[in-house]
Amino acid sequence: MPSQNLNTRDKIVAYWQGQSTFVTGLTQETCRDLTHTGYGISAISHIAETSRIQGRDLYGTDVGERLRQALGFQSGYQLGAAVPGWLCGGTLKPGLGPVTEVGYNALHNRRGVAMTSTGALTLNNRPAGSNNLFVAWETLTHGDNPS
């Protein structure tokens, strides 16, 4: 990102909360905490959902694939998977929040994409409540809703 002057590996690693191994599904906030990660995932889900309602399906693009990967990656650790030493120094701060419902419904229920960890977390969290900031009661609007 030229505007942030992230022009060396050290600057990039610092920007990514000290993470130096980059894998599919990892987000820039993962090593900060899963709560802030969830805010970003929720935002992407809502942008894709609004776009779909307005006639452009982003779920079938790289946006949908990135959303699927981010949901799956974070969901596995929120469910209690062991955190490897290369990831955030072996420690994650849980608290993903009620953010999986919109993306899971769109990708799994509408598009038929397998999402094992995300599905398990979504079902465990139902009915999804509110985080009192950005996300509220999305099971009501998106839980197993194919339309």
Score class of each variant (00 low, 15 high):
Arg32Tyr: 12
Asp33Cys: 00
Asp33Ile: 00
Asp33Arg: 00
Thr35Lys: 08
Thr37Phe: 05
Thr37Leu: 04
Gly38Thr: 04
Gly38Leu: 08
Tyr39Thr: 06
Tyr39Met: 07
Ala43Met: 13
Ala43Thr: 15
Ala43Gln: 15
Ala43Glu: 09
Ala43Cys: 08
Ala43Asn: 08
Ile44Lys: 03
Ile44Pro: 01
Ile44Ser: 03
Ser45Thr: 03
Ser45Tyr: 05
Ile47His: 10
Ala48His: 09
Ala48Asn: 13
Glu49Trp: 15
Glu49Tyr: 14
Thr50Asn: 12
Thr50Tyr: 02
Thr50Val: 07
Arg52Met: 05
Arg52Ala: 11
Ile53Thr: 13
Gln54Ala: 14
Gln54Cys: 12
Gly55Ala: 09
Arg56Gln: 12
Arg56Asn: 12
Asp57Lys: 13
Leu58Met: 14
Tyr59Thr: 00
Tyr59Phe: 12
Gly60Lys: 13
Thr61Lys: 01
Thr61Asp: 02
Thr61Val: 03
Val63Phe: 03
Gly64Arg: 08
Gly64Asp: 05
Gly64Thr: 03
Glu65Cys: 00
Glu65Phe: 01
Arg66Ala: 12
Leu67Ile: 14
Leu67Trp: 12
Leu67Gln: 14
Gln69Met: 13
Gly72Asp: 14
Phe73Tyr: 14
Phe73Val: 03
Gln74His: 06
Gln74Lys: 00
Gly76Cys: 02
Gly76Tyr: 01
Gly76Ser: 04
Tyr77Asn: 01
Leu79Ser: 04
Gly80Asn: 06
Ala81Gln: 12
Ala82Trp: 01
Ala82Met: 06
Pro84Ile: 06
Gly85Asn: 15
Trp86Ser: 15
Leu87His: 02
Cys88Val: 11
Thr91Asp: 07
Pro94Glu: 02
Pro94Met: 05
Pro94Cys: 00
Gly95Asn: 07
Gly95Tyr: 02
Gly95Val: 09
Gly97Val: 14
Pro98Gly: 03
Val99Asn: 13
Val99His: 13
